[in-house]
Computed example of a mutant assay.
Amino acid sequence: MRDISINIVNVPVGPGSQSEGDMVLDYMKMPSEMSTYDMPSFPEESELERCPQAMGILADIQLMLAQINDNGQGSVLTVTGLPDADLNLLNQILGEGEVSVLIDGEHPVRIQETVMAGIWRLRSFDKQGNVLSEAIEVAEIPECVREHAFATTVNLAERIAGLPEGLLNAPSVLVEIAETSAQYKQAPDMASHVINLSLLPFSPEDHYSLTTTTGTGCVTILSRGYGNCRITSTQVDGLWRVQYYNSTDHLILDTLEIVAIPAVACAAPEDLADSAIRLEEIRDALM
């Protein structure tokens, strides 16, 4: 079967602002073009006949899409133990889309959006890298991303009190983060609060203090839907580091966003409606 694992590493984000425009992204190579939808290549009729479970799962996904488009309710379908032939066929039909996710931890989870937005492939692993479970989830973003994004948190007030002297804007930004994070904890559905670091004079010491003070969470998201974007959770409730890169992997926009999940990572309602149409077209062509 094709390996759909996500080859990314959850590491602390480094500095990056307008004063450091020559800094390059050196931890992975991102694609230089936006992904576009292509109708998947269809298998031979004989292969379809050998994979009745895969065809049944496609029908289940169609119902899951109808449900979320009707009432916003996401759902998960376990495919652990599915025969390799059926799993290969599903991978061929569903393909790989714009968003990839890594959830670090004792049992890492790798998530890949399919070519149809809002349909996600999930795989969890043990410490030795063996697959523990596989699933397909239809949702704006898989629920496990929300559950693990801020699984570990730090005492931000204590860390702010211990900041070194001589910093430029990091202390005031951290105070703003602390106040807004407290609001987020009271109202998790609040509108996104964005701090544009690229517009602020930040020294390397400011960036280092900001990163070490807020910590690095266990969720890393890569999105190609709006350019090359890396989104990393922190250890402060609701706080994400959202960074955009150009085609040569130079950081062009560095922001902090306080919200449940940044919108750039989520499938929009219109995307989910479109995915239902696309999947129906694919199933019609296969029958």
Results as ranks from 00 to 15, higher is better:
Ala265Cys: 04
Thr214Lys: 00
Ile277Asp: 15
Met64Asp: 11
Ile231Pro: 05
Thr220Asp: 11
Gln62Trp: 07
Leu256Ile: 15
Ile261Phe: 01
Val109Glu: 12
Leu272Asp: 07
Glu280Leu: 15
Glu98Phe: 09
Ser275Met: 02
Ser223Pro: 12
Leu239Gly: 02
Asp104Lys: 15
Gln53Glu: 02
Glu96Trp: 10
Glu257Gln: 10
Arg224Ile: 03
Ala151Lys: 06
Ala268Ser: 10
Thr80Gln: 13
Ala260Met: 04
Lys127Glu: 09
Leu272Thr: 04
Phe125Trp: 15
Gln92Glu: 04
Ala260Glu: 05
Glu137Val: 10
Tyr27Pro: 03
Glu20Lys: 09
Gln53Ile: 00
Asn88Phe: 04
Ala59Lys: 11
Pro188Trp: 00
His207Lys: 05
Val194Phe: 04
Met190His: 06
Asp3Val: 11
Gly14Lys: 11
Asn10Lys: 14
Leu272Gln: 05
Glu20Gly: 06
Leu256Lys: 12
Ser192Asn: 03
Pro31Gly: 05
Cys144Trp: 01
Ser223Asp: 10
Asp86Ser: 11
Gly215Ala: 09
Ala170Gln: 00
Lys185Thr: 05
Ala191Asn: 10
Leu199Asp: 14
Ile282Cys: 01
Ser5Leu: 03
Glu98Asp: 05
Tyr208Lys: 13
Arg224Gly: 09
Gln112Asp: 10
Gly162Leu: 13
Leu25Thr: 01
Arg224Thr: 12
Asp189Asn: 05
Ala170Asp: 00
Ser46Pro: 02
Ser75Cys: 04
Leu82Pro: 04
Cys229Gln: 15
Ser203Cys: 13
Ala170Cys: 11
Thr234Glu: 00
Leu63Asn: 09
Asp84Met: 07
Glu33Tyr: 02
Leu94Arg: 07
Asp70Met: 09
Leu25His: 06
Val259Asn: 05
Asn228Cys: 08
Ile177Arg: 02
Thr248Lys: 03
Glu96Pro: 02
Gln235His: 13
Gln183Gly: 03
Leu102His: 14
Ile61Arg: 12
Arg278Met: 12
Ile195Thr: 07
Met1Ile: 08
Thr78Cys: 06
Gly95Ser: 15
Val154Pro: 02
Ser46Leu: 05
Gly105Arg: 15
Arg224Gln: 08
Val219Leu: 08
Thr80Tyr: 06
Val219Tyr: 01
Val154Gly: 05
Ala54His: 00
Phe150Met: 06
Cys144Arg: 05
Glu45Asp: 12
Pro269Asn: 13
Gln243Arg: 13
Leu222Met: 10
Leu48Ser: 07
Val115His: 11
Trp120Tyr: 12
Thr212Asn: 14
Pro171Met: 11
Leu94Gln: 07
Ala117Asp: 10
Asn155Arg: 12
